[in-house]
Design a protein around this nucleic acid. Sequence first.
DNA 1: AATTCACTTACGGCTTCCCGTAAAATATGT
DNA 2: ACATATTTTACGGGAAGCCGTAAGTGAATT
Lengths: 221, 221
Amino acid sequence: MFERVLVAEDQQSMNFWMLQTLKELNIKDAYYACYCDDALTRIKNSLKDGAPFDLLITDLSFVDDGRTQSINNGADLIKAVRQYQPAIKVLVFSSEPNPRVVNALFDKLAIDGYVHKGRTDTIDLKAALEVIYKGKKFVPEAFRVSIRQKNAFKFSNYDVAIIEQIAGGANQNEIPDYLKQQNMKPTSLSSIEKRLAQIKEELGFKKNEQLIAYCKDLKII
Amino acid sequence: MFERVLVAEDQQSMNFWMLQTLKELNIKDAYYACYCDDALTRIKNSLKDGAPFDLLITDLSFVDDGRTQSINNGADLIKAVRQYQPAIKVLVFSSEPNPRVVNALFDKLAIDGYVHKGRTDTIDLKAALEVIYKGKKFVPEAFRVSIRQKNAFKFSNYDVAIIEQIAGGANQNEIPDYLKQQNMKPTSLSSIEKRLAQIKEELGFKKNEQLIAYCKDLKII
DNA sequence: AATTCACTTACGGCTTCCCGTAAAATATGT
DNA sequence: ACATATTTTACGGGAAGCCGTAAGTGAATT
Protein backbone atom coordinates (compact mmCIF):
# COMPACT_ATOMS: atom_id res chain seq x y z
CA MET A 1 0.00 0.00 0.00
CA PHE A 2 1.04 3.64 -0.30
CA GLU A 3 3.53 4.80 2.27
CA ARG A 4 3.61 8.60 2.10
CA VAL A 5 0.40 10.47 1.30
CA LEU A 6 -0.33 14.19 1.15
CA VAL A 7 -3.87 15.47 1.51
CA ALA A 8 -4.75 18.93 0.15
CA GLU A 9 -8.13 19.96 1.46
CA ASP A 10 -9.45 23.11 3.08
CA GLN A 11 -12.01 21.49 5.34
CA GLN A 12 -10.37 20.81 8.65
CA SER A 13 -12.99 18.25 9.62
CA MET A 14 -12.39 16.34 6.43
CA ASN A 15 -8.63 16.42 7.00
CA PHE A 16 -9.00 14.97 10.47
CA TRP A 17 -11.21 12.20 9.17
CA MET A 18 -8.94 11.54 6.21
CA LEU A 19 -5.80 11.17 8.30
CA GLN A 20 -7.60 8.85 10.66
CA THR A 21 -8.87 6.73 7.78
CA LEU A 22 -5.41 6.52 6.24
CA LYS A 23 -3.97 5.44 9.60
CA GLU A 24 -6.55 2.65 9.74
CA LEU A 25 -5.18 1.49 6.39
CA ASN A 26 -1.69 1.39 7.89
CA ILE A 27 -0.50 4.48 6.06
CA LYS A 28 1.52 6.09 8.79
CA ASP A 29 3.11 8.92 6.84
CA ALA A 30 0.10 11.02 5.99
CA TYR A 31 -0.01 14.78 6.15
CA TYR A 32 -2.45 17.46 5.20
CA ALA A 33 -2.33 21.02 3.89
CA CYS A 34 -5.19 23.51 4.05
CA TYR A 35 -3.83 25.68 1.26
CA CYS A 36 -2.66 24.69 -2.22
CA ASP A 37 0.54 26.69 -1.82
CA ASP A 38 1.37 24.80 1.37
CA ALA A 39 0.72 21.52 -0.39
CA LEU A 40 3.09 22.41 -3.22
CA THR A 41 5.76 23.47 -0.74
CA ARG A 42 5.47 20.17 1.05
CA ILE A 43 5.86 18.31 -2.22
CA LYS A 44 8.98 20.30 -3.08
CA ASN A 45 10.49 19.74 0.37
CA SER A 46 9.75 16.04 0.28
CA LEU A 47 11.73 15.76 -2.96
CA LYS A 48 14.60 17.75 -1.48
CA ASP A 49 14.62 15.49 1.58
CA GLY A 50 14.67 12.38 -0.54
CA ALA A 51 11.38 11.17 0.91
CA PRO A 52 8.85 11.95 -1.81
CA PHE A 53 5.12 11.39 -1.44
CA ASP A 54 3.70 8.62 -3.58
CA LEU A 55 0.11 9.84 -3.53
CA LEU A 56 -1.61 13.21 -3.55
CA ILE A 57 -5.23 13.36 -2.48
CA THR A 58 -6.73 16.73 -3.29
CA ASP A 59 -10.00 18.61 -3.31
CA LEU A 60 -10.85 20.85 -6.27
CA SER A 61 -12.22 24.03 -4.73
CA PHE A 62 -10.48 25.92 -1.96
CA VAL A 63 -12.27 28.77 -0.25
CA ASP A 64 -10.51 32.10 -0.45
CA ASP A 65 -10.19 33.31 3.12
CA GLY A 66 -8.12 36.37 2.43
CA ARG A 67 -4.64 34.84 2.57
CA THR A 68 -3.23 35.54 -0.87
CA GLN A 69 -2.27 32.34 -2.64
CA SER A 70 -0.61 31.79 -5.97
CA ILE A 71 -2.58 28.58 -6.48
CA ASN A 72 -6.21 28.56 -5.41
CA ASN A 73 -7.71 25.38 -6.81
CA GLY A 74 -7.01 21.71 -7.08
CA ALA A 75 -6.59 21.55 -10.84
CA ASP A 76 -3.81 24.14 -10.83
CA LEU A 77 -2.22 22.40 -7.85
CA ILE A 78 -2.08 19.14 -9.77
CA LYS A 79 -0.46 20.87 -12.74
CA ALA A 80 2.13 22.50 -10.50
CA VAL A 81 2.90 19.30 -8.60
CA ARG A 82 3.35 17.38 -11.84
CA GLN A 83 6.07 19.81 -12.89
CA TYR A 84 8.16 18.72 -9.93
CA GLN A 85 7.07 15.12 -9.61
CA PRO A 86 5.44 13.90 -12.82
CA ALA A 87 4.97 10.33 -11.67
CA ILE A 88 3.07 11.03 -8.46
CA LYS A 89 -0.33 9.38 -8.28
CA VAL A 90 -3.24 11.77 -7.92
CA LEU A 91 -6.63 11.09 -6.41
CA VAL A 92 -9.22 13.84 -6.53
CA PHE A 93 -11.69 13.83 -3.64
CA SER A 94 -14.33 16.45 -4.18
CA SER A 95 -18.02 17.21 -4.12
CA GLU A 96 -17.89 18.44 -7.69
CA PRO A 97 -21.05 16.95 -9.22
CA ASN A 98 -20.41 17.92 -12.84
CA PRO A 99 -19.24 14.95 -14.92
CA ARG A 100 -17.85 17.28 -17.57
CA VAL A 101 -15.42 18.78 -15.08
CA VAL A 102 -14.36 15.39 -13.75
CA ASN A 103 -13.94 14.02 -17.23
CA ALA A 104 -11.64 16.88 -18.09
CA LEU A 105 -9.47 15.97 -15.11
CA PHE A 106 -8.92 12.46 -16.43
CA ASP A 107 -8.35 13.70 -19.98
CA LYS A 108 -6.19 16.76 -19.43
CA LEU A 109 -4.52 16.17 -16.08
CA ALA A 110 -4.35 12.39 -16.26
CA ILE A 111 -5.51 11.96 -12.68
CA ASP A 112 -5.62 8.41 -11.38
CA GLY A 113 -8.93 8.47 -9.63
CA TYR A 114 -11.94 10.44 -8.58
CA VAL A 115 -14.01 9.90 -5.44
CA HIS A 116 -17.15 11.89 -4.97
CA LYS A 117 -17.86 13.15 -1.46
CA GLY A 118 -21.17 11.46 -0.94
CA ARG A 119 -23.19 8.72 0.68
CA THR A 120 -20.62 6.04 -0.10
CA ASP A 121 -17.38 7.99 0.01
CA THR A 122 -15.81 6.02 2.87
CA ILE A 123 -16.12 2.82 0.86
CA ASP A 124 -15.17 4.49 -2.40
CA LEU A 125 -12.04 6.02 -0.92
CA LYS A 126 -10.71 2.70 0.28
CA ALA A 127 -11.52 1.05 -3.04
CA ALA A 128 -9.85 3.89 -4.92
CA LEU A 129 -6.66 3.58 -2.89
CA GLU A 130 -6.39 -0.11 -3.67
CA VAL A 131 -7.16 0.28 -7.35
CA ILE A 132 -4.75 3.17 -7.83
CA TYR A 133 -2.02 1.37 -5.90
CA LYS A 134 -2.28 -1.39 -8.46
CA GLY A 135 -1.67 1.16 -11.20
CA LYS A 136 -5.23 1.36 -12.50
CA LYS A 137 -7.64 4.27 -12.80
CA PHE A 138 -10.58 4.66 -10.43
CA VAL A 139 -13.74 6.06 -12.00
CA PRO A 140 -16.93 5.30 -10.08
CA GLU A 141 -19.32 3.31 -12.24
CA ALA A 142 -22.32 5.43 -11.32
CA PHE A 143 -20.46 8.43 -12.60
CA ARG A 144 -19.51 7.00 -15.95
CA VAL A 145 -23.16 6.65 -16.85
CA SER A 146 -23.98 10.24 -16.16
CA ILE A 147 -20.95 11.32 -18.13
CA ARG A 148 -22.55 9.84 -21.20
CA GLN A 149 -25.97 11.26 -20.42
CA LYS A 150 -24.90 14.81 -19.89
CA ASN A 151 -22.36 15.12 -22.67
CA ALA A 152 -25.02 15.78 -25.23
CA PHE A 153 -23.23 18.85 -26.51
CA LYS A 154 -19.49 19.39 -26.68
CA PHE A 155 -18.35 22.95 -26.22
CA SER A 156 -15.11 23.66 -28.03
CA ASN A 157 -12.56 26.16 -26.76
CA TYR A 158 -13.80 28.42 -29.50
CA ASP A 159 -17.35 28.19 -28.23
CA VAL A 160 -16.28 28.82 -24.67
CA ALA A 161 -14.24 31.85 -25.72
CA ILE A 162 -17.23 33.41 -27.43
CA ILE A 163 -19.59 32.64 -24.58
CA GLU A 164 -17.20 34.00 -22.01
CA GLN A 165 -16.90 37.24 -23.93
CA ILE A 166 -20.66 37.61 -24.09
CA ALA A 167 -21.07 36.77 -20.41
CA GLY A 168 -18.41 39.37 -19.70
CA GLY A 169 -20.55 42.05 -21.28
CA ALA A 170 -18.99 42.31 -24.72
CA ASN A 171 -21.01 43.35 -27.71
CA GLN A 172 -20.99 40.78 -30.47
CA ASN A 173 -19.23 43.18 -32.78
CA GLU A 174 -16.33 43.43 -30.32
CA ILE A 175 -15.70 39.71 -30.45
CA PRO A 176 -14.03 39.41 -33.88
CA ASP A 177 -11.08 41.52 -32.69
CA TYR A 178 -10.83 39.49 -29.52
CA LEU A 179 -10.75 36.21 -31.43
CA LYS A 180 -8.01 37.53 -33.69
CA GLN A 181 -5.95 38.39 -30.60
CA GLN A 182 -6.46 34.83 -29.38
CA ASN A 183 -5.54 33.39 -32.78
CA MET A 184 -8.84 31.58 -33.04
CA LYS A 185 -10.04 30.73 -36.46
CA PRO A 186 -13.35 32.01 -37.78
CA THR A 187 -13.26 35.62 -36.70
CA SER A 188 -15.97 37.29 -38.71
CA LEU A 189 -19.05 38.61 -37.01
CA SER A 190 -21.11 36.46 -39.31
CA SER A 191 -19.34 33.27 -38.25
CA ILE A 192 -19.80 34.13 -34.63
CA GLU A 193 -23.47 34.75 -35.14
CA LYS A 194 -23.80 31.45 -36.96
CA ARG A 195 -21.93 29.48 -34.32
CA LEU A 196 -24.00 31.00 -31.54
CA ALA A 197 -27.19 30.26 -33.41
CA GLN A 198 -26.09 26.67 -33.93
CA ILE A 199 -25.23 26.13 -30.27
CA LYS A 200 -28.58 27.52 -29.20
CA GLU A 201 -30.37 25.44 -31.83
CA GLU A 202 -28.74 22.21 -30.62
CA LEU A 203 -29.53 22.96 -26.99
CA GLY A 204 -33.04 24.15 -27.77
CA PHE A 205 -32.49 27.69 -26.58
CA LYS A 206 -33.85 30.88 -28.00
CA LYS A 207 -31.75 33.54 -26.34
CA ASN A 208 -28.20 34.25 -25.25
CA GLU A 209 -29.26 34.79 -21.67
CA GLN A 210 -30.57 31.24 -21.54
CA LEU A 211 -27.27 29.93 -22.83
CA ILE A 212 -25.31 31.88 -20.22
CA ALA A 213 -27.49 30.49 -17.43
CA TYR A 214 -26.96 26.98 -18.77
CA CYS A 215 -23.21 27.35 -19.05
CA LYS A 216 -22.97 28.77 -15.55
CA ASP A 217 -24.99 25.87 -14.15
CA LEU A 218 -22.73 23.35 -15.84
CA LYS A 219 -19.65 25.35 -14.91
CA ILE A 220 -18.61 25.60 -18.53
CA ILE A 221 -17.80 29.22 -17.84
CA MET B 1 -24.95 20.09 26.79
CA PHE B 2 -27.30 18.69 24.19
CA GLU B 3 -28.39 15.12 24.77
CA ARG B 4 -30.00 13.94 21.56
CA VAL B 5 -28.68 15.22 18.23
CA LEU B 6 -29.66 14.35 14.67
CA VAL B 7 -27.25 14.97 11.81
CA ALA B 8 -28.62 15.29 8.27
CA GLU B 9 -25.77 15.11 5.81
CA ASP B 10 -25.16 13.16 2.62
CA GLN B 11 -21.39 12.80 2.96
CA GLN B 12 -20.72 9.58 4.75
CA SER B 13 -17.21 10.63 5.70
CA MET B 14 -18.54 13.78 7.29
CA ASN B 15 -21.17 11.81 9.19
CA PHE B 16 -18.55 9.51 10.65
CA TRP B 17 -16.44 12.43 11.73
CA MET B 18 -19.42 14.30 13.12
CA LEU B 19 -20.63 11.42 15.27
CA GLN B 20 -17.16 10.90 16.60
CA THR B 21 -16.80 14.58 17.44
CA LEU B 22 -20.16 14.61 19.19
CA LYS B 23 -19.16 11.58 21.23
CA GLU B 24 -16.01 13.39 22.32
CA LEU B 25 -18.31 16.12 23.63
CA ASN B 26 -20.20 13.53 25.67
CA ILE B 27 -23.22 13.57 23.42
CA LYS B 28 -24.03 9.90 23.37
CA ASP B 29 -27.34 9.98 21.55
CA ALA B 30 -26.29 11.14 18.13
CA TYR B 31 -27.58 9.75 14.88
CA TYR B 32 -27.25 10.58 11.26
CA ALA B 33 -29.39 10.42 8.13
CA CYS B 34 -28.08 10.54 4.59
CA TYR B 35 -31.39 11.65 3.10
CA CYS B 36 -33.67 14.50 4.14
CA ASP B 37 -36.70 12.23 4.11
CA ASP B 38 -34.99 9.84 6.49
CA ALA B 39 -34.09 12.73 8.77
CA LEU B 40 -37.70 13.91 8.89
CA THR B 41 -38.92 10.39 9.64
CA ARG B 42 -36.47 10.13 12.51
CA ILE B 43 -37.71 13.42 13.93
CA LYS B 44 -41.32 12.23 13.73
CA ASN B 45 -40.52 8.90 15.35
CA SER B 46 -38.54 10.55 18.12
CA LEU B 47 -41.59 12.63 19.00
CA LYS B 48 -43.82 9.56 18.96
CA ASP B 49 -41.43 7.73 21.24
CA GLY B 50 -41.31 10.60 23.68
CA ALA B 51 -37.57 11.05 23.18
CA PRO B 52 -37.31 14.10 20.92
CA PHE B 53 -34.06 15.42 19.55
CA ASP B 54 -32.97 18.75 20.92
CA LEU B 55 -30.65 19.68 18.07
CA LEU B 56 -30.67 19.21 14.31
CA ILE B 57 -27.40 19.65 12.47
CA THR B 58 -27.98 19.77 8.75
CA ASP B 59 -26.23 20.42 5.47
CA LEU B 60 -27.93 22.48 2.79
CA SER B 61 -27.34 20.62 -0.43
CA PHE B 62 -28.01 16.93 -0.86
CA VAL B 63 -26.89 15.16 -4.00
CA ASP B 64 -29.65 13.50 -5.97
CA ASP B 65 -28.55 9.90 -6.45
CA GLY B 66 -31.70 8.63 -8.10
CA ARG B 67 -33.70 7.69 -4.99
CA THR B 68 -36.80 9.83 -5.27
CA GLN B 69 -37.16 12.08 -2.24
CA SER B 70 -39.93 14.46 -1.29
CA ILE B 71 -37.40 16.77 0.38
CA ASN B 72 -34.08 17.28 -1.34
CA ASN B 73 -32.38 20.16 0.46
CA GLY B 74 -31.61 21.40 3.94
CA ALA B 75 -33.79 24.49 3.85
CA ASP B 76 -36.92 22.51 3.06
CA LEU B 77 -35.96 19.96 5.68
CA ILE B 78 -35.77 22.67 8.32
CA LYS B 79 -39.19 23.98 7.33
CA ALA B 80 -40.68 20.50 7.51
CA VAL B 81 -39.07 19.67 10.85
CA ARG B 82 -40.30 22.93 12.36
CA GLN B 83 -43.87 21.93 11.55
CA TYR B 84 -43.56 18.97 13.88
CA GLN B 85 -41.14 20.36 16.44
CA PRO B 86 -41.04 24.16 16.27
CA ALA B 87 -38.71 24.58 19.23
CA ILE B 88 -35.90 22.33 18.02
CA LYS B 89 -32.55 24.07 17.71
CA VAL B 90 -31.08 24.06 14.22
CA LEU B 91 -27.43 24.34 13.25
CA VAL B 92 -26.58 24.50 9.57
CA PHE B 93 -23.22 22.99 8.64
CA SER B 94 -22.47 23.56 5.03
CA SER B 95 -19.92 24.69 2.51
CA GLU B 96 -22.31 27.26 1.11
CA PRO B 97 -20.09 30.30 0.60
CA ASN B 98 -22.77 32.84 -0.33
CA PRO B 99 -23.56 35.18 2.57
CA ARG B 100 -26.86 36.09 1.00
CA VAL B 101 -28.07 32.51 1.24
CA VAL B 102 -26.87 32.13 4.81
CA ASN B 103 -28.41 35.41 5.82
CA ALA B 104 -31.75 34.29 4.45
CA LEU B 105 -31.56 31.19 6.67
CA PHE B 106 -31.28 33.32 9.80
CA ASP B 107 -33.99 35.70 8.63
CA LYS B 108 -36.57 33.35 7.17
CA LEU B 109 -35.93 30.03 8.90
CA ALA B 110 -34.67 31.43 12.19
CA ILE B 111 -31.81 28.97 12.37
CA ASP B 112 -29.69 29.11 15.50
CA GLY B 113 -26.27 28.87 13.95
CA TYR B 114 -24.20 28.47 10.85
CA VAL B 115 -20.82 26.79 10.62
CA HIS B 116 -18.94 26.93 7.38
CA LYS B 117 -17.12 23.76 6.33
CA GLY B 118 -13.65 25.20 6.16
CA ARG B 119 -10.22 25.56 7.65
CA THR B 120 -11.53 26.14 11.16
CA ASP B 121 -14.71 24.10 11.15
CA THR B 122 -13.71 21.73 13.96
CA ILE B 123 -13.24 24.65 16.31
CA ASP B 124 -16.27 26.50 15.00
CA LEU B 125 -18.52 23.50 15.46
CA LYS B 126 -17.63 23.10 19.10
CA ALA B 127 -18.05 26.81 19.71
CA ALA B 128 -21.38 26.79 17.94
CA LEU B 129 -22.71 23.92 20.03
CA GLU B 130 -21.86 25.75 23.24
CA VAL B 131 -23.28 29.06 22.10
CA ILE B 132 -26.51 27.54 20.80
CA TYR B 133 -26.94 25.45 23.93
CA LYS B 134 -26.95 28.69 25.88
CA GLY B 135 -29.80 29.92 23.70
CA LYS B 136 -27.78 32.34 21.59
CA LYS B 137 -27.23 32.53 17.85
CA PHE B 138 -23.92 31.52 16.28
CA VAL B 139 -22.82 33.60 13.31
CA PRO B 140 -19.10 33.45 12.55
CA GLU B 141 -17.53 36.88 12.78
CA ALA B 142 -15.58 36.47 9.57
CA PHE B 143 -18.81 35.84 7.78
CA ARG B 144 -20.64 38.87 9.07
CA VAL B 145 -18.04 41.09 7.46
CA SER B 146 -18.46 39.60 4.06
CA ILE B 147 -22.21 39.84 4.38
CA ARG B 148 -21.81 43.59 4.52
CA GLN B 149 -19.29 43.68 1.69
CA LYS B 150 -21.21 41.63 -0.78
CA ASN B 151 -24.69 42.95 -0.15
CA ALA B 152 -24.07 46.01 -2.25
CA PHE B 153 -27.21 45.47 -4.23
CA LYS B 154 -30.48 44.04 -2.94
CA PHE B 155 -32.47 42.07 -5.45
CA SER B 156 -36.20 42.22 -4.76
CA ASN B 157 -38.53 39.35 -5.56
CA TYR B 158 -39.68 41.47 -8.48
CA ASP B 159 -36.13 41.74 -9.79
CA VAL B 160 -35.52 38.05 -9.41
CA ALA B 161 -38.76 37.23 -11.20
CA ILE B 162 -37.76 39.32 -14.19
CA ILE B 163 -34.23 37.96 -14.28
CA GLU B 164 -35.44 34.39 -14.02
CA GLN B 165 -37.76 34.90 -16.95
CA ILE B 166 -34.95 36.29 -19.07
CA ALA B 167 -32.58 33.52 -18.05
CA GLY B 168 -35.32 31.07 -18.98
CA GLY B 169 -35.35 32.38 -22.51
CA ALA B 170 -38.30 34.72 -22.43
CA ASN B 171 -38.48 37.73 -24.69
CA GLN B 172 -38.87 40.95 -22.77
CA ASN B 173 -42.25 41.54 -24.35
CA GLU B 174 -43.49 38.26 -22.88
CA ILE B 175 -42.71 39.32 -19.35
CA PRO B 176 -45.58 41.79 -18.73
CA ASP B 177 -48.14 38.99 -19.02
CA TYR B 178 -46.09 36.79 -16.73
CA LEU B 179 -45.87 39.48 -14.07
CA LYS B 180 -49.63 40.02 -14.20
CA GLN B 181 -50.11 36.30 -13.59
CA GLN B 182 -47.82 36.56 -10.57
CA ASN B 183 -49.65 39.66 -9.30
CA MET B 184 -46.48 41.69 -9.33
CA LYS B 185 -46.80 45.39 -9.55
CA PRO B 186 -45.29 47.35 -12.42
CA THR B 187 -46.17 45.20 -15.38
CA SER B 188 -45.57 47.42 -18.37
CA LEU B 189 -42.78 46.63 -20.75
CA SER B 190 -41.41 50.10 -20.17
CA SER B 191 -41.17 49.58 -16.42
CA ILE B 192 -39.40 46.27 -16.92
CA GLU B 193 -36.94 47.87 -19.29
CA LYS B 194 -36.31 50.64 -16.81
CA ARG B 195 -35.83 48.32 -13.87
CA LEU B 196 -33.41 46.16 -15.81
CA ALA B 197 -31.49 49.22 -16.92
CA GLN B 198 -31.31 50.43 -13.32
CA ILE B 199 -30.05 47.10 -11.99
CA LYS B 200 -27.38 46.94 -14.64
CA GLU B 201 -26.44 50.56 -14.03
CA GLU B 202 -25.99 49.98 -10.29
CA LEU B 203 -23.90 46.88 -10.86
CA GLY B 204 -21.90 48.48 -13.64
CA PHE B 205 -23.05 46.07 -16.33
CA LYS B 206 -23.82 46.77 -19.96
CA LYS B 207 -25.67 43.68 -21.06
CA ASN B 208 -28.24 41.18 -19.86
CA GLU B 209 -25.88 38.28 -20.37
CA GLN B 210 -23.49 39.80 -17.88
CA LEU B 211 -26.26 40.14 -15.33
CA ILE B 212 -27.30 36.53 -15.77
CA ALA B 213 -23.71 35.36 -15.25
CA TYR B 214 -23.48 37.47 -12.09
CA CYS B 215 -26.77 36.21 -10.69
CA LYS B 216 -25.81 32.61 -11.36
CA ASP B 217 -22.46 33.08 -9.62
CA LEU B 218 -24.17 34.54 -6.56
CA LYS B 219 -26.92 31.94 -6.71
CA ILE B 220 -29.56 34.61 -6.90
CA ILE B 221 -31.18 32.53 -9.60
C1' DA C 1 -4.76 23.51 -63.88
C1' DA C 2 -9.49 22.95 -63.24
C1' DT C 3 -13.37 21.39 -60.39
C1' DT C 4 -15.53 20.44 -56.40
C1' DC C 5 -16.70 20.95 -51.74
C1' DA C 6 -16.57 22.84 -47.27
C1' DC C 7 -16.00 26.74 -44.84
C1' DT C 8 -15.82 31.67 -44.13
C1' DT C 9 -17.24 36.32 -44.98
C1' DA C 10 -20.19 40.22 -46.52
C1' DC C 11 -24.46 42.31 -46.68
C1' DG C 12 -29.44 43.55 -46.20
C1' DG C 13 -33.93 43.22 -43.97
C1' DC C 14 -36.29 42.25 -39.99
C1' DT C 15 -36.93 41.75 -35.03
C1' DT C 16 -35.81 42.75 -30.46
C1' DC C 17 -33.87 45.60 -27.30
C1' DC C 18 -32.39 50.07 -25.36
C1' DC C 19 -33.27 54.65 -23.82
C1' DG C 20 -35.21 59.18 -23.66
C1' DT C 21 -39.38 62.00 -23.36
C1' DA C 22 -43.91 62.90 -22.24
C1' DA C 23 -48.49 61.67 -20.78
C1' DA C 24 -51.31 59.16 -17.49
C1' DA C 25 -52.12 57.20 -13.12
C1' DT C 26 -51.34 56.81 -8.39
C1' DA C 27 -49.71 58.33 -3.97
C1' DT C 28 -48.70 62.04 -0.63
C1' DG C 29 -49.21 66.29 1.87
C1' DT C 30 -51.90 70.47 3.14
C1' DA D 1 -60.58 68.36 -2.29
C1' DC D 2 -56.74 70.19 -4.36
C1' DA D 3 -52.01 70.61 -5.50
C1' DT D 4 -47.72 68.40 -5.70
C1' DA D 5 -44.61 64.28 -6.03
C1' DT D 6 -43.74 59.94 -7.47
C1' DT D 7 -44.53 56.03 -10.12
C1' DT D 8 -46.17 53.82 -14.10
C1' DT D 9 -47.20 53.65 -18.88
C1' DA D 10 -47.00 54.79 -23.86
C1' DC D 11 -44.47 55.74 -27.75
C1' DG D 12 -40.70 56.52 -31.05
C1' DG D 13 -36.04 56.66 -32.83
C1' DG D 14 -31.67 54.45 -32.90
C1' DA D 15 -28.60 50.49 -31.79
C1' DA D 16 -27.72 45.62 -31.49
C1' DG D 17 -28.79 41.15 -32.60
C1' DC D 18 -30.79 37.54 -35.73
C1' DC D 19 -31.13 35.12 -40.04
C1' DG D 20 -31.08 34.06 -44.83
C1' DT D 21 -28.67 34.58 -49.21
C1' DA D 22 -24.89 35.15 -51.98
C1' DA D 23 -20.19 35.91 -52.82
C1' DG D 24 -15.47 34.81 -51.61
C1' DT D 25 -11.57 31.67 -50.07
C1' DG D 26 -8.81 27.69 -49.82
C1' DA D 27 -7.78 22.84 -49.55
C1' DA D 28 -8.44 18.26 -51.70
C1' DT D 29 -9.23 15.52 -55.84
C1' DT D 30 -8.83 14.34 -60.49
